[in-house]
Design a protein around this nucleic acid. Sequence first.
DNA 1: AATGAATGAGCGTTCATTCAT
DNA 2: TATGAATGAACGCTCATTCAT
Lengths: 197, 197, 197, 197
Amino acid sequence: MPKIVDHEQYRKELLSKCFDLFAQKGYGSITMRQISQGLGVSTGTLYHYFPSKQALFEQLVEETCQQDVVMALAELEGTETLKESMIALGRYLAKNEDYFIKWTYLWIDFCQHQDSKEIPGNNIFKNSNQRYRQAVCDFFEIQDPMLASFILSFIDGLLVRKLQGDEMIDFTEQCTLLGEILTAYLQQYESSKVANY
Amino acid sequence: MPKIVDHEQYRKELLSKCFDLFAQKGYGSITMRQISQGLGVSTGTLYHYFPSKQALFEQLVEETCQQDVVMALAELEGTETLKESMIALGRYLAKNEDYFIKWTYLWIDFCQHQDSKEIPGNNIFKNSNQRYRQAVCDFFEIQDPMLASFILSFIDGLLVRKLQGDEMIDFTEQCTLLGEILTAYLQQYESSKVANY
Amino acid sequence: MPKIVDHEQYRKELLSKCFDLFAQKGYGSITMRQISQGLGVSTGTLYHYFPSKQALFEQLVEETCQQDVVMALAELEGTETLKESMIALGRYLAKNEDYFIKWTYLWIDFCQHQDSKEIPGNNIFKNSNQRYRQAVCDFFEIQDPMLASFILSFIDGLLVRKLQGDEMIDFTEQCTLLGEILTAYLQQYESSKVANY
Amino acid sequence: MPKIVDHEQYRKELLSKCFDLFAQKGYGSITMRQISQGLGVSTGTLYHYFPSKQALFEQLVEETCQQDVVMALAELEGTETLKESMIALGRYLAKNEDYFIKWTYLWIDFCQHQDSKEIPGNNIFKNSNQRYRQAVCDFFEIQDPMLASFILSFIDGLLVRKLQGDEMIDFTEQCTLLGEILTAYLQQYESSKVANY
DNA sequence: AATGAATGAGCGTTCATTCAT
DNA sequence: TATGAATGAACGCTCATTCAT
């Protein structure tokens, strides 16, 4: 086998150590020198594996997003009702609060260093958004994409408010509330459907 | 006698022209030189009126936040039910989509240039958050602070997802959905209360 | 009388408040704005009375130097022998240590903001140096200008070393030592003269 | 393999060219850009070798101080009596007058750009002061630290007065005088000791 | 493949001085 | 006489990227 295998493997190894480095200082604030040092390689080597800071981060997004979804679904499986699922989600968010806030922070930080017109066209972002949306649909057994957007927006909103220093946000509490609200809504929706027939 | 300039008035004049300048490039990316040029003054003059970039932005936050709430409440008044109010909010958000996304973008961008420990202690932010929360409570006639947090988070979440390039978000649609969901929830809550008596 | 009297008087009033302002931050570090604020006038007014920062300081040097000599001679009078005089000087330096160090600091700071070629040609400095030298000759009853230079250099040296952070310098101790040393020298000199005859 | 540059060696090379650059304008007045240009490198490169202007200067102090002491002792060796030593010192100072004045000038200039509380705690300064003091003790065969302080203060004083534009200072003359004075003092001291037995 | 020296435009901020009022 | 708004070049320092080795 050619060396390309080692090259790919080493790239992934480096990538896996990058999350914490980015998380410590943010996308915009950490320098390529600092990343190099954190990885124990030279800047030249870093550029050998990743053509730019932006590309490095985009690869990190893809990798992290995949792992996120897999791990979340693995840990959350086994709930039965929507309410239970939401409570489980709330606990999961609360448990990994630091991680998710950092991740949101990083993601937005990155967006703010791009031309805002280019963001919607970015395939990495499209893919990652799609993956998260699919995971929500699967886990909550929802078909309506609008409802999935609703839930995703709400989760992002919680994270952003916390990030902005709103100390009144409590993930478990808020997700439980979302569970109750959605359950009430869906029950009514169901019964109205029945009533119509 | 000094040059005939009302310091305070001129400061506010400059401030009012700053929003668009910040919005064009973001807090972190725009430079004080660019702001000066945009305002048609020298950097020295800019620093004569605002002691630092951070202070300039904080003053902008305060000013903008006040105006936001006043204008929104003025435009949205006259709705009767929660559903109607939410639909009105959705339309209002959609109509001023660009503005609100930029505002969210700016706010977060600024947060990311601060020490994250200092954000919750920042009085400007505390005040502004409190003002928005109060406006939500007033407009939707809500007393439960958890529910206010729920709505605020959801709105922020919509804006953030849009900001991150999620093209499936439609403000009117999502707010209408929120109206229906909340109405269903509150009705059930009311009837359960009645049932208890 | 014309207004020129008030002008002169006001100038001296301002000048008298300047020493502390300069001493607080140094010649190079304090700004004309800060001086204005400290004096309670506008920068424009300050420039009305003093054509430049340099000129302001030079006038301060002249004024301060005169007062210094008068006050020192007044306080130190009444000693009889050289030894006594030196001990008195040491005490006087130690008592006003902060003041003298600041004054030395200011003087050198100013020199360092001038072209070094222009310093020896500066009349203010020539005059002030001459005044200090004369005071030394008067107080210690010395005629030899070389000896006056010796004493002045030594005093300046003590102040500079202290300024540079040498903590082993003790003004009283060192001046007492200088008194003993000079007495020994002058006695020997006297006796050698006698011996020659 | 990196570019063939011995980091340490090149750093010292750059450092050795820095003295004259600093001496030309003073610590506070010369800019890092000017230093870069004088060295023939970019500002980025300069910062690659020295983390800050202050650090650059401190390294220069250390290097220069070491060389100073070694060279002075080498050139001055071979004197027998204190008088001879002082005359030799005076000649040495006069010969290198410009250099020593600049060096004193630089040192003080640097002190004035530091927080005055931090100067005594600065290890570079402590070490350098200690080195000079030791050299004085060694060369003049003095044990009494007070006497070493006396001589150091006097030398510094000569340099400062010259720096301040006092044209009556003559290094050779003054050092010769110091030699005579100290000899007289020490002889008297010796004879008084003898008298006590 | 791997290194790290080198670049230079650009950052936020400062300040002695000027001048219209 | 007195004001203080206005200037703009220059400060120390940063950092994504390049490239000779």
